[in-house]
Design a protein around this nucleic acid. Structure first.
Length: 573
DNA sequence: GCCGTTTTCGGCCCGACTGTTTTCAGTCG
């Protein structure tokens, strides 16, 4: 089993923690953290890169030393320096740093003075009032530590965008009623449309006497006020979500929005460009010799450093700054480009609304076509369609189409890819369909090699059109199955198949990285909702988010095509 | 540990908030 990028990243993160506790040079520590992030976000396995003879030190932020260390981890599964540091600093101390308010210095002090190594040790010491006796700690700090330790167990899950949206929108509506409020926007990873968000960063501009900060900490849903200042406060909501509110002057709105939207990697890149031009860039503006020369809008900030405006979804430090410099940013796909949905279920299997209701809903959304892809027989829990029932559905769609003149209903099915790579209905009936979606619903635990072969074999069938939810992951619920997604992408291009970007908020499968990989390999995708009800059709925006984060343009997405062209694309061979 | 139109050494983002101080260290984003 090859070493996964995540494991390499975990080693570097842990090493960074332990070195930091030891008091190592902070920039060295940062180099390991940056490397962890770079490796974790890389769409290609380090192991594959090495096998292909690539020079890892050409990756930004990875120098000769780190390249060598990555190679060692890939080859031996171990990082000798980490083992060495572990002899001096107990491994568990790095877990302590995950408690809010505990950084390297405090963890070190707790360890040296009170022998605290684990979360349990910490809990005991807090309960026995040992911590407040330490220099630099006091009663209040001890109390806060005690509370946070108790809460620590079981936390850590990030929130899907769907849930985050719900929480954020109510809060924003509430804050909008504050006196003296001008602009309000949610920045951070929420604005970058990351598939999950850890916390919410809300940015406002307001008059001096505005009530917004007080109103924020008084919000009904707030169960803990972590910080409460004039320009910045942090609270924890009942949902567990942390929310930051920052108030900035109007002249700084653009630079603050840029700063708090991130990502960190992107901001550092922009700031570096500014430094080269002799500017200082912070959340209050772009400054030359302490004189503000830009900052009211984000566009101004980008212009000052010689870049065109970068959409938030691209701000991940994956080459967007270089592209912006060369005016080569993609023209990202939008909801307006979408002409139809290619993966929907009805009451014929496990959907909640009828063929007719779903079609009406698609028409209301301005679509030109909608495809019904009810399950096939192998998915028994969903009462999947056998040949006879599929023929009946085809009939029903023909009759429905006869009555409609402003939307076309496409005949399809979500087939099951069986373990041997065959599809679970005969070609004879599949040929009566406009196209197919083929998915894996069983046997998730095959080896990567077997799973990849299974899928490629299925794609060999000329009736195979779109590969549904290609990795099977469900956010916070189920890990993706082991599969070589790059091979699948290349295999799909060779065979004239497509991959789905399943827009269901808890799937988002393909994810952003895989979308980028698809784009880089010239593969087109279908962004589909996998709707099981009328309201699910609105998941389209979540799929778009990920496609946009993967640099996709309208031309990379097949359901932006008018029907005629789409039908042509579906003809294989 | 990385990086380079300030290039092989010397920088590397920095401001807000809190608790424990009595002028600041630690943490966070």
């Amino acid at each position: 089993m090859p070493i996964h990028n995540n494991e390499i990243a975990d080693d570097f993160d842990r090493l960074a923690d332990l070195l930091e506790i030891e008091g190592a040079n902070q920039f060295r520590v940062r180099a390991y953290r940056d490397a962890a992030r770079t490796v974790r976000n890389d769409t290609r396995n380090m192991a594959d890169r090495i096998e292909d003879g690539e020079d890892l030190s050409e990756i930004a932020g990875i120098g000769e030393d780190l390249a060598e260390k990555i190679k060692t981890i890939v080859e031996t599964g171990e990082l000798p320096l980490l083992e060495e540091v572990r002899l001096r600093v107990p491994d568990a101390l790095s877990d302590l740093m995950r408690i809010e308010g505990l950084g390297p210095k405090r963890v070190k002090a707790l360890y040296h003075n009170l022998d605290i190594e684990t979360i349990d040790d910490l809990k005991d010491a807090a309960e026995n009032e040992k911590i407040q006796e330490l220099e630099g700690f006091g009663r209040k700090t001890e109390h806060i530590i005690k509370e946070r330790v108790e809460r620590f167990a079981g936390a850590e899950k990030r929130t899907t965008l769907l849930v985050a949206e719900d929480i954020a929108e109510s809060l924003v509506e509430y804050l909008k009623q504050s006196k003296g409020l001008k602009d309000i926007v949610i920045a951070g990873s929420y604005r970058r449309c990351k598939e999950t968000v850890g916390d919410l960063d809300i940015l406002v501009t307001a008059k001096k006497d505005s009530s917004v900060m007080k109103r924020f900490v008084d919000y009904d849903e707030v169960i803990e006020v972590i910080l409460h200042g004039k320009t910045r406060s942090t609270v924890r909501l009942r949902s567990g979500m942390h929310v930051d509110l920052r108030v900035v002057p109007e002249v700084s709105y653009g630079s603050a929005l840029h700063y708090f939207t991130g990502s960190k990697a992107h901001n550092i890149g922009v700031r570096k460009l500014g430094m080269k031009k002799g500017y200082k860039i912070n959340e209050y503006g772009v400054f030359k010799n302490d004189k503000r020369i830009a900052g009211k809008t984000e566009k101004e900030v980008y212009e000052k450093v010689g870049l065109c405006y970068v959409p938030p979804e691209l701000r991940e430090g994956r080459g967007e700054i270089e592209a912006a410099k060369n005016n080569a940013l993609p023209d990202l796909v939008t909801l307006n480009d979408i002409r139809g949905d290619l993966h929907c279920h009805t009451t014929a299997t496990d959907g909640h609304n009828s063929l007719k209701k779903m079609t009406e809903a698609a028409r209301e959304r301005g679509y030109e076509y909608i495809a019904f892809t009810d399950h096939s027989k192998h998915v028994t829990v969903a009462r999947g369609l056998d040949k006879k029932r599929l023929l009946k559905q085809i009939d029903a769609i023909d009759r429905l189409n006869d009555k409609l003149d402003d939307i076309v209903v496409l005949k399809s099915i979500e087939l099951d890819i069986l373990e041997d790579g065959s599809l679970d209905l005969p070609d004879s009936v599949l040929k009566k369909l406009d196209f197919t979606v083929c998915s894996v619903h069983y046997k998730f635990h095959l080896s990567s090699k077997k799973q990849t072969e299974r899928i490629l074999r299925a794609m060999d069938n000329p009736c195979f059109t779109i590969f549904g939810h290609p990795t099977g992951r469900q956010i916070n619920e189920r890990e993706p199955y082991q599969v070589d997604i790059e091979k699948i992408i290349k295999g799909a291009v060779e065979r004239g198949c497509f991959l789905e970007v399943n827009a269901n908020a808890s799937r988002l499968d393909l994810n952003d990285d895989a979308c980028k990989l698809a784009k880089d390999n010239g593969l087109k995708v279908a962004i589909s909702t996998d709707a099981h009800s009328v309201s699910d059709l609105d998941f389209m925006r979540f799929g778009l988010n990920q496609a946009r984060r993967g640099w996709m343009e309208a031309k990379d997405v097949i359901n932006t095509l008018p029907l005629k062209k789409l039908r042509k694309l579906f003809q294989r061979g």
